[in-house]
Each structure stands twice: as structure tokens, then as C-alpha cells.
């Protein structure tokens, strides 16, 4: 998942005894592992929280096309170009399923798009970083898709049916994305001196931002507590970040690359790696719009939307003419 800092009700989790019978039945169904479907009753907070979360995830898929699209026209072989095209196409497809899942909650894709373009809704901080060399296509697949998978696999069990089902399909494709990224890294890390340098540089630049993808510690967050009670969020941010580090470190070692963290070491007692937290000041800067590419990314999406207005209008006008002609013929 590519959602960070999602706000819930902010009121803390109610106990079953504090809930009215309808809400209690809803919560008990979730506790028993049941799914909530679009036509079912749901608390207003649950609906709003999900729209924010699914919407942010969908926007991330859409904006996420840009840093990879940056290399499609410079991909070094026909096969790499085809794989990257397929990956970016998958991402646009993920955006589409997720917008559809959000629409079942009573919001339109156009409304969500407007909120993205105006800056009201966010997308993942990671897509505000530039892709500077071909190795970045490897690092993005390996680390960024890898971090996304950490979040998405548990979300296949999330309480909202359409979201859980979208996630099943998305997870299959994301694991292919991660493998293709790692495959690029292998070629680079085992390649010429220049390629090795590109690979290490990509890891240096993407390590911190990848750790930030899980969001700051949410141990004391009332929003996260509510999301977890509703099974919209399945694990804490720290838990997933640790899992990610534990998985990536041996992979980096296999590549012969150095994780850019001098404090990184295996902690026998905990059974996990100890690692340095990413620069959270930088994270909040990026969220405030001050990442290296925030301005370009939003400008690019706004330009695509504005330049495409005549196309959307034209096709709608044609469809209306066809409908009118059909009615007249009946």
C-alpha cells in the first residue's frame, strides 16, 4: 500500500459496550473476520477513513507512473522496455481498480482526481523523489514495490470486501514488479564498474525514502488504533518497517551492495536488525510539498488533465449524440 498518515475519526476506539446495537453488530462482524460489502451499513468514520486510504493508494499508483515513465524511452534493451511498459501499465490498472473500490463507498473518480490535482489529497511521499539512472528502475522495483508489498499482503484480509479483492490481484502483480526490480539490480551490481556505481548510488538515494513509506511510528496514534480495530490497517508502521529491513539487508548483501546505514547490525537478542530511523524532518518536508519533485509531479498530472479536457469532452459529446440517435430510431 502507498498510504501514509491516514486520519481516522481521531476519537479513539470505542469499546463494544459503548456502541449502539448497529455499530456493535458491525464491529462484531469485523472481529469475527467477516467482510463488509458496499450495501452494508457502516459507520460514517469507517467510510471516510477508507475513502482517504484507498484514494491515497490510487493516487500513488497514478503519480507513480511518472518516475518510471521517465525511463521507458531510455530503457537499454527491448525486453527491459517491454517489462517496464507492462509494469507501468499494471500500475495504471491498479489505480483503476482502486478508484472503482473507492467509488463503491459513494465518491466519484472525478472528485478524487480533483482532490489530487488541487493538492488536497496526498499520494505516497516516495514518488516525489527523482529517478536519475537506469539503476533507479531496479531500486524502485526492489525497494519501493517491496515496501508496498509488505503493506498490501496483509490488506488482502482487510475488512472491506472490494478493497480486499482489489488487493489480491494487485499483490500478484506487485510481486512480479519487485522481482523485475531485483533482476535489474542483479545485472547492475554484477556488471561493469559504472553499473555497480549506479546500483550503489540508487540504493543510497532510495533507502531512506523507502523506510519512510511506512510512515512515522504510530505506536501512540489514535488514528491507527481505530484503523486497526476496523481491520483497515493490519500492522503497525514500525512492525512493517522492521520486517522490510530484515528482508532487504540479506538481499543487499547478496548483491554486494552496502545499505547506507553505519548503525545497521543484527541483534541476536531481538532476532531483528537494528537500524537508523530515516530523516523524519525530510519526510515532513516532502509531505508539505517540499520534496525534490513535488512540484513537477503535480504539474505533470495537472497538465495531463487540462490538456486532455477536449478529448474527454469530445468523447462524451459523441456518446451523447449516439444515445440521442439511438433513441430517435426507437
Amino acid at each position: 500500500m502507498y498510504a501514509q498518515m491516514i486520519k481516522s475519526t481521531g476519537e479513539g476506539v470505542k469499546s463494544l459496550d459503548e456502541m449502539d446495537p448497529q455499530e456493535r453488530a458491525f464491529q462484531e462482524r469485523i472481529n469475527a473476520g467477516g467482510k463488509i460489502e458496499p450495501k452494508d451499513w457502516m459507520p460514517d468514520g469507517y467510510r471516510k477513513n477508507l475513502i482517504r486510504q484507498i484514494g491515497q493508494h490510487a493516487h500513488s499508483e497514478i503519480v507513480g507512473q511518472l518516475p518510471e515513465g521517465n525511463w521507458i524511452t531510455r530503457a537499454p534493451t527491448l525486453e527491459r522496455k517491454a517489462i517496464l511498459l507492462a509494469k507501468v501499465q499494471d500500475e495504471a490498472g491498479h489505480g483503476l481498480y482502486l478508484y472503482c473500490a473507492a467509488e463503491t463507498l459513494g465518491v466519484t473518480r472525478d472528485q478524487l482526481t480533483r482532490d489530487l490535482l488541487s493538492g488536497k489529497m496526498k499520494y505516497s511521499s516516495i514518488f516525489n523523489y527523482p529517478t536519475l539512472t537506469w539503476a533507479d528502475m531496479g531500486a524502485v522495483g526492489w525497494l519501493v514495490d517491496g515496501a508496498a508489498i509488505m503493506n498490501q499482503v496483509p490488506l488482502q484480509r482487510t475488512s472491506y470486501g472490494p478493497y480486499a479483492r482489489a488487493m489480491v490481484r494487485i499483490c500478484k502483480e506487485e510481486s512480479f514488479h519487485q522481482r523485475q526490480g531485483y533482476d535489474i539490480m542483479m545485472k547492475m551490481a554484477k556488471g561493469t564498474e559504472a553499473q555497480k556505481k549506479m546500483a550503489q548510488d540508487a540504493l543510497n538515494r532510495f533507502w531512506g525514502p523507502a523506510l519512510m513509506m511506512f510512515g512515522p511510528s504510530d505506536e501512540n496514534s489514535v488514528h491507527s488504533a481505530q484503523s486497526m480495530a476496523w481491520k483497515i490497517k493490519m500492522n503497525s508502521n514500525d512492525e512493517l518497517r522492521q520486517k522490510f529491513v530484515d528482508e532487504c539487508v540479506p538481499q543487499a548483501e547478496y548483491l554486494g551492495l552496502t545499505v547506507p546505514d553505519p548503525e545497521l547490525k543484527w541483534n541476536e537478542e531481538r532476532g531483528h536488525y537494528d537500524f537508523t530511523q530515516p530523516d523524519w524532518d525530510e519526510f515532513f518536508d516532502v509531505l508539505r510539498g517540499n520534496g525534490p519533485c513535488n512540484t513537477e509531479r503535480l504539474e505533470a498530472r495537472n497538465k495531463a488533465w487540462d490538456d486532455g479536457a477536449w478529448v474527454r469532452d469530445g468523447l462524451m459529446a459523441h456518446a451523447a449524440k449516439k444515445r440521442a440517435a439511438k433513441l430517435a430510431a426507437e
Binding site: 489505480g95 486532455g308 474527454r312
Partner: peptide, 17 residues
């Protein structure tokens, strides 16, 4: 492929790719 991420609507991004 130069269109990637810049199409008028999401369905067109997918179709162009």
C-alpha cells in the same frame, strides 16, 4: 510510450501502454 502517465484519462494511459 512517450505518453506514459500523461494521457487524458486513465483508460487511455492503459491503452497507450
Amino acid at each position: 510510450s512517450e505518453w506514459c502517465g500523461h494521457a487524458p484519462v486513465l483508460e487511455e494511459d492503459i491503452a497507450l501502454a
